[in-house]
Amino acid sequence: MSIFETIIQPDTFDVLIKIGIILLKIVIVVAAAMLHVMYATYFERKSIGHMQVRLGPMEVGPHGVLQPIADGVKLFFKEDIIPADADKPVFYIAPVISLVAALSSLSVIPFFKGFVIANINIGLLFILAMSSLGAYGIIISGWASNSKYSFLGGLRSSAQVISYEIAMGLSLVGVMMMAGSLNISDIVNAQAAYPLRVYAIPQMLGFFVFMVAGIAETNRAPFDLPEAESELVAGYFVEYSGIRFAMFYLSEYIGMIVISLIAVVCFLGGWSGPFDIPYVPFAWLLLKVYFFIFFYYWIRATLPRYRYDQLMSLGWKLLIPLALLNIVITGIAKLML
């Protein structure tokens, strides 16, 4: 049989079509994510700007709408500087690990009914695994730069990940118990039976812990210790420039979007809403995600930064006990009902 004949066999053809569809979905999701990251930065600068009685970007395009594009182009063409004493292979690979880990989390998230790249049964676990993996990028970039400031940033990051990963994982256990599944589409569907079609009300405690731990997980203010500007200058990526810096930046924002997406699908009913919006099945999801992203910005403009040891004690002494309590309460409620 020639290659052509192999391809047109009914079974092979189906497989190829499936692969093609998956590839198409990946392209769509990655492209959409990149676009959203670009405009998430614009949205951040504008919204924080207006909170701080200034205008934000105004120069490139009307009201600065082309600013993210200009920034992207600039970062592409910037000189890529590698410190002389850096551990080069590790230095190269660190931003890649960060970005890949952040992007791959998107693969298990259902954006609307039936649209998910990989509808696997361990979706939630996969996301947690990927976000832990992302921390490796930060830790080894801090190490590989051979700079004391980035080293301190990397150390802080590893400590932060250990403390907050646990709280975040535990806060999602309640959701898993209620839905009886780790598959994210199933979790969304299971929420339909609850008031307002969300888990946020029965899982209030878990939701709170998840939000706080999620902010810490993405290194955003007030938990932005690994990159504390006024203490460690820029923390782990202080030696990075050009496109490598852009990759860290991208992974931070994608991480933020991913955390918002998990919050939406696990606690706020995912793509479902009070009424259906025709032709745009992902409208509710987007709205909810942008609400969370705005919440991130709002917090950044409002709160001072925690100190490293205070962050640790908050994680271990408050969030983890709260998450455990939530599991106990959920368990008892499940038994009773």
Partner: peptide, 16 residues
């Protein structure tokens, strides 16, 4: 001082 401790907004209010 507020900016160093991480509160960004008082800085811009103050400069106004």
């Amino acid at each position: 001082h507020a900016l160093d401790i991480g509160a960004m907004t008082p800085f811009l209010y103050a400069f106004r």
